[in-house]
C-alpha cells in the first residue's frame, strides 16, 4: 500500500526523477519528466538515456555516472557550471528568456548488497534562481560601472581614474614601457560660470568631455580630475605622441563652440604633458609634474600645450 502511495507522491513531485540501470538504460521516470520532455513512457522506458536525450554530453556524463557506480558516492551538476543537461521545457516560458529549464542535477547511487545496481538522477527546475541571479549580476555590473563614472561628464570619476593610473604606473615600471599623462584645465571657467550660469558651465563640461573622448584611442583612460580639470592616461605612449594628442585636443576644443540657449560659448583649454621618468617613484610624482606643466601653460598665456621638464 505504501509503495502505491510513494508512486503517487513521486508523480506529483516538481522534481524530475530518472532511474537508470548500470548500462544507463532508463528503468523509470516520473510524471514531471514525462511532461517537460513531452514524451510517452513507451518512447523512453527500456531505452538508453543517450538515445532518449541525444543532447547529453555523452563522454562527460558516462565518466560522471561511472564515478557514482565505482565510488558509491552521490554526484552533482549545478546550473552555474552547466545551465542544463536535459533539454526540457520550464515553468516560466513567458516571463524569462531561458530556452530550456535551468537545472540542478543530483546523481544518487542505489545500492543492493554493497553493489550499485541503479543510479537515480534527480532534476530540479532552477530557472527561477538562474533568472534572478542573472538579473542580480547585471545590476551589480551596472552599479560597479556607475561607481566608476562621473555622473555629469560620463568620464571616469577621480577615484577610479586614480586607481587606473596607479595600475598603469606600476605596469609601465615593471615592463619598462612608456606611459604619458595629459592634465588639462578649461580656461577662465569661473568667468564662464559667472556669465552663463552654472547650467551653462555644466553644458560646456559635458561637451568638452565628449569632444575629448572622441579623440582618444582604445586603452586611453580619461577622467574628471576636479571641477574643470580633466586628465588622460596614455599607456605605451612617448612624449612626442602625447604632445600630439594634447595638441589635437587643444585645437578641437578651441574650434568648438558650445551652443547654450541660442548662444555660442567659445572655450579653450590649457594642457600639461608628462611622461614616466626614472625620478617618478610614485604615480603622484607623475601627476605633479604634469600639473606643473599645466600651470606653465596657464602662465604663458593659456590655450596652449606645455611639456614637463625632461629629467
Amino acid at each position: 500500500m505504501l509503495d502505491g502511495l510513494c508512486d503517487k507522491i513521486i508523480n506529483r513531485l516538481n522534481t524530475g526523477v530518472l532511474l537508470l540501470d548500470r548500462n544507463f538504460n532508463i528503468l523509470m521516470w516520473n510524471r514531471f519528466l514525462a511532461v517537460h520532455a513531452n514524451q510517452h513512457d513507451e518512447q523512453v522506458i527500456g531505452k538508453n538515456i543517450f538515445q532518449v536525450f541525444p543532447e547529453l554530453p555523452r563522454k562527460w556524463l558516462e565518466r560522471k555516472l561511472s564515478s557514482v557506480i565505482q565510488l558509491k558516492n552521490q554526484s552533482f551538476c549545478g546550473w552555474e557550471q552547466r545551465h542544463h543537461l536535459f533539454e526540457l521545457a520550464h515553468s516560466r516560458p513567458i516571463t524569462t528568456d531561458s530556452d530550456f529549464m535551468a537545472q540542478n542535477c543530483t546523481f544518487l547511487p542505489i545500492e543492493e548488497h554493497g553493489q550499485v545496481t541503479q543510479i537515480c538522477i534527480l532534476i530540479e527546475d532552477v530557472t527561477d534562481i538562474y533568472h534572478y541571479q542573472t538579473q542580480l549580476k547585471k545590476t551589480l555590473q551596472e552599479l560597479a560601472l556607475s561607481n566608476r563614472i562621473d555622473g555629469l561628464t560620463q568620464a571616469f570619476n577621480r577615484k577610479h581614474w586614480e586607481e587606473c593610473l596607479a595600475a598603469e604606473f606600476s605596469r609601465a615600471r615593471r615592463h619598462h614601457s612608456s606611459l604619458a599623462l595629459v592634465m588639462l584645465d578649461l580656461d577662465h571657467f569661473k568667468l564662464l560660470n559667472d556669465t552663463h550660469g552654472h547650467q551653462g558651465g555644466d553644458k560646456v563640461l559635458i561637451e568638452t568631455a565628449k569632444a575629448i573622448n572622441e579623440l582618444l584611442r582604445m586603452g586611453d583612460l580619461f577622467g574628471r580630475y576636479g571641477g574643470e580639470e580633466f586628465a588622460v592616461i596614455l599607456p605605451n605612449t612617448e612624449l612626442s605622441g602625447a604632445e600630439e594628442v594634447a595638441e589635437r585636443i587643444r585645437q578641437t576644443i578651441a574650434l568648438k563652440a558650445v551652443d547654450y540657449q541660442g548662444q555660442n560659448i567659445g572655450i579653450t583649454v590649457s594642457l600639461g604633458v608628462a611622461v614616466l621618468a626614472q625620478q617618478d617613484k610614485r604615480y603622484e610624482d607623475l601627476i605633479s609634474r604634469a600639473d606643473n606643466a599645466l600651470y606653465k601653460a596657464k602662465f604663458s598665456g593659456r590655450n596652449r600645450v606645455s611639456l614637463a621638464d625632461a629629467s
Partner: peptide, 18 residues
C-alpha cells in the same frame, strides 16, 4: 569538456563524499 570551476567542484564532491 568542462570548465576549471566545474573540475574543482567535481573533485571537491568526490573528496568530501568519499
Amino acid at each position: 569538456e568542462l570548465t576549471f570551476d566545474e573540475q574543482i567542484i567535481d573533485l571537491s564532491s568526490i573528496l568530501t563524499t568519499t
